[in-house]
Protein backbone atom coordinates (compact mmCIF):
# COMPACT_ATOMS: atom_id res chain seq x y z
CA UNK A 1 0.00 0.00 0.00
CA UNK A 2 1.31 3.38 -0.94
CA UNK A 3 1.83 5.86 1.81
CA UNK A 4 -0.16 9.05 2.21
CA UNK A 5 1.91 12.14 1.70
CA UNK A 6 1.35 15.68 2.84
CA UNK A 7 2.89 18.54 0.87
CA UNK A 8 4.09 21.26 3.15
CA UNK A 9 5.90 24.55 2.86
CA UNK A 10 8.86 24.67 5.18
CA UNK A 11 9.83 27.88 6.89
CA UNK A 12 12.17 28.88 9.64
CA UNK A 13 11.59 30.67 12.87
CA UNK A 14 14.59 31.09 15.12
CA UNK A 15 16.49 27.85 14.66
CA UNK A 16 13.50 25.65 14.20
CA UNK A 17 11.73 24.44 11.10
CA UNK A 18 7.98 24.64 10.73
CA UNK A 19 5.58 23.43 8.09
CA UNK A 20 2.20 24.52 6.78
CA UNK A 21 0.21 22.42 4.31
CA UNK A 22 0.53 23.78 0.79
CA UNK A 23 -3.22 23.81 0.27
CA UNK A 24 -3.59 26.69 2.70
CA UNK A 25 -0.84 28.81 1.21
CA UNK A 26 -1.82 31.46 -1.29
CA UNK A 27 1.58 32.95 -1.99
CA UNK A 28 4.92 33.88 -0.48
CA UNK A 29 5.82 37.54 -0.52
CA UNK A 30 8.92 39.54 0.22
CA UNK A 31 8.93 41.87 3.16
CA UNK A 32 7.24 45.16 2.38
CA UNK A 33 5.92 48.24 4.04
CA UNK A 34 3.24 47.43 6.57
CA UNK A 35 0.60 49.88 7.72
CA UNK A 36 0.12 49.58 11.44
CA UNK A 37 -3.44 49.09 12.67
CA UNK A 38 -3.97 50.59 16.11
CA UNK A 39 -5.84 48.75 18.81
CA UNK A 40 -4.79 45.30 17.72
CA UNK A 41 -2.62 42.74 19.57
CA UNK A 42 1.15 43.25 19.42
CA UNK A 43 1.74 40.39 17.02
CA UNK A 44 -0.60 41.90 14.44
CA UNK A 45 1.86 44.05 12.56
CA UNK A 46 -0.77 45.73 10.42
CA UNK A 47 -2.00 45.44 6.85
CA UNK A 48 -0.41 45.37 3.43
CA UNK A 49 -1.72 45.87 -0.07
CA UNK A 50 -1.64 42.45 -1.61
CA UNK A 51 -2.57 42.98 -5.24
CA UNK A 52 -5.39 45.29 -4.34
CA UNK A 53 -6.61 43.35 -1.33
CA UNK A 54 -5.93 44.73 2.11
CA UNK A 55 -4.38 41.81 3.95
CA UNK A 56 -3.58 41.65 7.66
CA UNK A 57 -0.08 40.55 8.65
CA UNK A 58 0.99 38.83 11.85
CA UNK A 59 4.51 38.27 13.09
CA UNK A 60 4.85 34.60 13.94
CA UNK A 61 7.85 35.21 16.17
CA UNK A 62 5.77 37.49 18.32
CA UNK A 63 2.80 35.20 18.08
CA UNK A 64 4.89 32.36 19.53
CA UNK A 65 6.62 34.61 22.07
CA UNK A 66 10.01 34.15 20.50
CA UNK A 67 12.63 36.85 20.71
CA UNK A 68 12.16 39.66 18.24
CA UNK A 69 14.80 40.25 15.60
CA UNK A 70 15.27 42.69 12.76
CA UNK A 71 13.76 41.72 9.44
CA UNK A 72 16.38 40.66 6.90
CA UNK A 73 16.69 40.03 3.19
CA UNK A 74 15.43 36.49 3.69
CA UNK A 75 12.37 37.49 5.72
CA UNK A 76 9.21 36.35 3.99
CA UNK A 77 5.47 36.75 4.35
CA UNK A 78 3.50 33.57 3.83
CA UNK A 79 -0.05 34.34 2.83
CA UNK A 80 -2.43 31.70 4.11
CA UNK A 81 -6.15 31.21 3.56
CA UNK A 82 -8.16 29.56 6.25
CA UNK A 83 -11.90 29.57 6.62
CA UNK A 84 -12.36 32.65 4.39
CA UNK A 85 -9.73 34.54 6.35
CA UNK A 86 -6.65 35.68 4.49
CA UNK A 87 -3.67 36.46 6.65
CA UNK A 88 0.04 36.93 6.05
CA UNK A 89 2.57 35.44 8.47
CA UNK A 90 6.03 36.93 8.81
CA UNK A 91 8.71 34.21 9.06
CA UNK A 92 12.49 34.29 9.07
CA UNK A 93 12.73 32.50 5.76
CA UNK A 94 10.77 30.14 3.56
CA UNK A 95 12.91 27.80 1.57
CA UNK A 96 11.42 24.45 0.79
CA UNK A 97 8.43 22.48 -0.31
CA UNK A 98 8.55 18.84 0.72
CA UNK A 99 6.35 15.78 0.86
CA UNK A 100 6.17 14.20 4.22
CA UNK A 101 4.71 10.76 4.80
CA UNK A 102 1.74 10.88 7.11
CA UNK A 103 3.23 8.07 9.15
CA UNK A 104 6.09 10.20 10.32
CA UNK A 105 3.78 12.76 11.90
CA UNK A 106 3.55 12.41 15.63
CA UNK A 107 1.37 14.27 18.07
CA UNK A 108 3.04 17.23 19.75
CA UNK A 109 5.22 16.28 22.72
CA UNK A 110 3.39 16.95 25.92
CA UNK A 111 5.49 18.92 28.29
CA UNK A 112 4.30 19.91 31.69
CA UNK A 113 3.51 23.56 31.83
CA UNK A 114 3.24 24.18 28.11
CA UNK A 115 -0.12 25.75 27.51
CA UNK A 116 0.32 27.43 24.22
CA UNK A 117 1.21 24.26 22.37
CA UNK A 118 -2.32 23.75 21.06
CA UNK A 119 -1.42 25.51 17.84
CA UNK A 120 0.97 22.67 17.06
CA UNK A 121 -0.70 20.02 15.01
CA UNK A 122 2.13 17.54 15.21
CA UNK A 123 5.82 16.94 14.70
CA UNK A 124 7.28 15.21 11.67
CA UNK A 125 10.62 13.50 11.86
CA UNK A 126 12.57 13.41 8.61
CA UNK A 127 16.05 11.93 8.83
CA UNK A 128 17.66 14.37 11.18
CA UNK A 129 15.22 17.20 10.68
CA UNK A 130 12.35 17.93 12.96
CA UNK A 131 9.44 19.72 11.42
CA UNK A 132 6.77 21.37 13.52
CA UNK A 133 3.42 21.30 11.77
CA UNK A 134 1.15 24.17 12.62
CA UNK A 135 -2.52 24.11 13.33
CA UNK A 136 -3.34 27.29 11.42
CA UNK A 137 -6.81 27.55 12.84
CA UNK A 138 -5.35 27.92 16.29
CA UNK A 139 -2.57 30.23 15.18
CA UNK A 140 -5.13 32.65 13.88
CA UNK A 141 -7.65 31.84 16.56
CA UNK A 142 -10.02 34.65 17.29
CA UNK A 143 -10.63 33.55 20.86
CA UNK A 144 -6.98 34.00 21.58
CA UNK A 145 -7.10 37.37 19.94
CA UNK A 146 -9.95 38.45 22.10
CA UNK A 147 -8.27 37.17 25.21
CA UNK A 148 -5.18 39.15 24.45
CA UNK A 149 -7.25 42.22 23.78
CA UNK A 150 -9.04 41.98 27.08
CA UNK A 151 -5.80 41.39 28.94
CA UNK A 152 -4.37 44.47 27.32
CA UNK A 153 -7.49 46.38 28.03
CA UNK A 154 -7.50 45.61 31.74
CA UNK A 155 -3.83 46.12 32.41
Amino acid sequence: MSEEFMKVIVFQLKEEEYGVPVKYVGSIERMQNITRVPGTPEFVKGVINLRGVVTPIIDLRERFDLEITEYTESTRIIIVNIADKEVGMIVDSANDVIDIPESTIEPPPEVVGSVEADYIHGVAKLDKRLLILLNLDKVLSKDELKQIQTVEGTS
Binding site: P38, G39, V54, T55, P56, K85
Partner: peptide, 10 residues
Amino acid sequence: LGNYLTNVFA
Protein backbone atom coordinates in the same frame (compact mmCIF):
# COMPACT_ATOMS: atom_id res chain seq x y z
CA LEU B 1 -9.67 45.06 6.69
CA GLY B 2 -10.69 41.50 5.91
CA ASN B 3 -12.34 38.87 8.00
CA TYR B 4 -9.44 38.50 10.35
CA LEU B 5 -9.40 42.00 11.78
CA THR B 6 -12.95 42.88 12.60
CA ASN B 7 -14.24 45.60 14.87
CA VAL B 8 -11.04 47.55 15.17
CA PHE B 9 -11.80 50.54 17.36
CA ALA B 10 -12.36 53.78 15.46
